[in-house]
């Protein structure tokens, strides 16, 4: 059976670093971030709206990101997010965790 979709269980654990990665490039807001994710993933993955905002809530609660109000591309007031120093450290640790996960799991995967 050929896989056509990414496993949502696996990627759910990585929605935080995915968003942080984009925020390290520049501050951004909801729609812009979900659009970038789709573009970088080349349409292979689309983050659901509720998953995105759950992540914003969680990241903010943990102090990894901060929000402020700014003007969106279409002139509407939007909530922008900015990554904090704590967030950058957390991102690094998630990258290391992923390397380890990849290393272990790939030992059990036949090409």
């Amino acid at each position: 059976m050929a896989a056509t979709e990414i496993s949502s269980d696996v990627i759910r654990g990585y929605s935080d670093p995915i968003i942080l990665f984009l925020l390290m490039e520049s501050d951004s807001y909801g729609y812009e971030i979900s659009k970038s994710i789709r573009e970088i993933a080349e349409e292979k993955y689309t983050m659901k709206e509720t998953t995105l905002y759950s992540a914003f809530t969680r990241l903010q609660k943990n102090g990894y990101i901060e929000s402020y109000s700014g003007d969106g591309t279409q002139g509407k007031r939007r909530t922008y997010y900015r990554i904090t120093e704590k967030g950058k450290t957390y991102y690094q640790s998630k990258c290391e965790e992923w390397e380890l996960t990849k290393d272990v799991v790939s030992r059990f995967m036949k090409e």
Binding site: E49, T57, G72
Partner: peptide
């Protein structure tokens, strides 16, 4: 309500 209005803006942008 704040999240709801953000979601509406996102969905509107996507729709447009």
């Amino acid at each position: 309500l704040k999240i709801k209005s953000e979601l509406l803006s996102d969905m509107t942008d996507k729709y447009n």
